[in-house]
Simulated assay, not measured.
Amino acid sequence: MTRVVVADDQELVRAGFAMILDAQADIEVVAEAGDGFQAVAAVRDHRPDVVLLDIRMPGMDGIEAARIIGAETDCRTVMLTTFDQDDHVFDALRAGASGFLLKDVRRDDLVHAVRVVAKGESLLAPSVTRRLVEQFTVGGATRPLPAARLSVLTSRERETLRMLAEGMSNPEIAAAMVVSTHTAKTHVSNVLSKLGLRDRVQAVIAAYETGLVVPGQR
């Protein structure tokens, strides 16, 4: 059973999402929250697998709530937003979000998203993530990490990280390295583990922030 907290300051949106998810046999909504403070408290109390966080909420916004939740728990975070109007998506990624949902998401896509993130996967396809990160890094949203952070990686793992940032899947990485898909998956896992990253989304960000990949260049 996947346990979920839904946090949105709009009661109708919050209740609608909760109703859809709670109707699934394998999903249980354990709490609802109207702001970031309530969301953090709900995650602390209920220890859910996934929390849906509206980026813009009164008091504490979803980004700060995501930072706290990511630092204190293993709960996976999905941000609720309207991408075309939101300029905080990159900050949300840096705060630990595993992906995004538009507020007008379809019922089936909402359920699928929760299941995907609960399994430890990122919600955005790597190629979409790359374009998203490039948009915000070109706009000056990054606060670079020291390149020395990558010193823990082997040359193969650094190359794997570069390929992740280019939006390549595990089979594509395997083909480029002329190794098995299992080996490529191992390289990806090692990159995430050594750098203390939750998922591929965070790996893409690390590649940009350390200068391994330069926005707009291939």
Rank of each mutant, 00 (worst) to 15 (best):
T77H: 03
D109M: 09
A207N: 13
L132A: 08
R3K: 11
N170A: 14
G70A: 05
V213I: 15
A42W: 00
V29L: 07
Q217N: 13
L212K: 12
M163E: 04
G167V: 00
E134S: 13
D26Q: 14
G211H: 13
M1K: 13
A203I: 02
V191K: 07
E159I: 01
A148Y: 00
A33C: 10
V6A: 09
R115S: 02
H88I: 03
L101W: 08
G120M: 02
R162L: 02
T142C: 03
I20K: 07
T82C: 09
T77Q: 02
V179M: 09
A42T: 02
D61V: 10
V117W: 01
Q202N: 01
D199H: 06
P144A: 12
A18H: 01
M1V: 14
I20N: 08
L12N: 06
L52T: 11
V152T: 10
A31E: 11
D87L: 05
V179T: 14
R47S: 13
V204K: 04
A206R: 00
V179D: 04
R106P: 12
V138Q: 05
Q24V: 10
D104F: 07
D109C: 00
M57V: 09
E121S: 12
D54I: 09
A42S: 12
V50M: 08
C75V: 04
A92I: 05
L195K: 12
F136S: 07
D84Q: 05
